[in-house]
């Protein structure tokens, strides 16, 4: 590699006294004192959460109120710190979403383990698990930090669904075989 010799001008006595630099520094800090603050007064002011933010993972329902999770357990498999624990179950016969067949009986995310990597959201084939905009999640005990299914749906709420995959499937079932 070619080396380039940089010419360095020798410092004058005045410069070597360090005083001009001190004065320069003092000028800058003095100017800074009158600039507006850049901080956020946290509990009253809240940061604006950018889209795609990875907050607390939650479970969501589709606009018709159907729980989207079918407990395929891919998130449980992919979760690097093993924070997710699902007990799969069959959807009872009398349920409206009976045609989905499978749903989580219990769904737990241990927020003490979660590292907010978002792999669960990425892997979910049903778009049922979302890392939404909750950025401060606290509790007083270990138990409190384990989100169960009910809590996860409370936090998650409802998200729009572009496909309605299962509803279309149910409709097809009702309409019968298209092949003639």
């Amino acid at each position: 590699m070619a080396t380039k010799v940089v010419e360095r001008k020798p410092l004058s006595i005045w410069e070597r006294s360090y005083l001009p630099q001190i004065v320069g520094g003092l000028k800058i800090t003095f100017k800074n004192m009158f600039k507006p603050t850049v901080t956020l007064e946290y509990p009253e002011e809240r940061p604006e959460i950018p889209p795609g933010y990875r907050g607390v993972p939650t479970l969501v329902r589709d606009p018709n109120g159907r729980e989207k999770c079918v407990s395929c357990q891919l998130c449980e498999f992919v979760c690097p710190p093993k924070a997710i624990r699902i007990t799969p179950g069959e959807i009872p016969e009398e349920s409206e979403s009976r045609h989905v067949e499978k749903g989580p009986q219990e769904f737990e995310i241990n927020m003490l383990r979660c590292i907010y990597c978002g792999l669960c959201q990425e892997v979910c084939p049903e778009e049922a698990i979302w890392l939404q905009d909750i950025y401060s999640f606290t509790g007083y005990s270990r138990e409190e930090m384990v989100n169960d299914k009910q809590k996860l749906y409370e936090l998650g709420g409802t998200l729009p669904d572009p496909y309605y995959k299962w509803d279309r499937k149910k409709q097809a079932e009702l309409e019968g075989n298209p092949h003639h």
């Binding site: 800074n32 004192m33 009158f34 600039k35 603050t37 901080t39 007064e41």
Partner: peptide, 10 residues
């Protein structure tokens, strides 16, 4: 206070 102001804090 002065430290805060210089550093852009309240």
């Amino acid at each position: 206070k002065v430290c805060g102001w210089i550093q852009g804090r309240p």
